[in-house]
Amino acid sequence: MVKDIIVENVSKTYDSDRGPVEAVKNFSMEVEKGDFVAIVGPSGCGKTTLLWGLTGLHPFTSGKAIILDKIVDKPRQSVGIVFQQANLLPWRNLIQNIYFPLEIMGKNIKEYKSKIQDLIKSVGLDGFENHHPRELSGGMQQRASIIRALSFDPQILLMDEPFGALDAYTRDEMDTLILELWEKTQKTIVFVTHRIEEAVYLANKVYVMTARPGTNSAIFNIDLPRPRPEGITMEMRYFNIVAEIKRKIVEDVEKQKKEGKYKSQAYSTIT
């Protein structure tokens, strides 16, 4: 299989008022083409830092990250990013927001128009093209931001707790939606979340990170059928995997506490 993303021993240290903070330490990961990988871990473990490192906006202090055979040193047009918040530009209407990346990249919007229109339809935003963000609900805004990330047809989608700001019901809807989009578009997705249930439902593979400094703890291959059958989240086999991952995280935290290495979230400025 082709490896779209290869991460080798990356670390990231921040300067803070209390001196350097080691957010990520020697993390490694591989993602195959068209795969759906989730990263979970306790709060403040550096999941977001890791993802931001992959975007090229936020370089790693050491280690190597390769996306589509190129070293990550700057943002690339092969990568779409979905942030924690929809982060739409309030002075643009929905369709202008979706065209925003194409404008920046100097691409011909006409060539992408029909594909984008399809995407808009598939997430149920058709008819809202001329609405401004303040007229849209949180869920609609986040759906628009996903379409924005897909607008220039990148091979890879990086998602940083994209549904964290939404209420529980909307989150579940969005999870189903993102799976539909993934099956339809065949993108390679890296999905950061602190919700293990969400990770298990969505991903083929779940990377567990330890508490800060975030490093590899375990990798779980999620052996559930694709496409996910309806009601899978209420079945025992699903719960078992979730419980297994939770147990692993609790174990890690206990171990770090025993070694006096666990830093509670009170110290954390960066999640």
Binding site: L57, P75, Q85
Partner: peptide
């Protein structure tokens, strides 16, 4: 910063960031 990060993730130039983000 979040909106500037957004523009930068698409490879926006300083000038593009100015007139598409900072000016509005």
């Amino acid at each position: 910063l979040a909106k500037i990060a957004l523009a930068k993730s698409y490879g926006a130039s300083t000038f593009q960031i100015f007139y598409k983000i900072r000016f509005p």
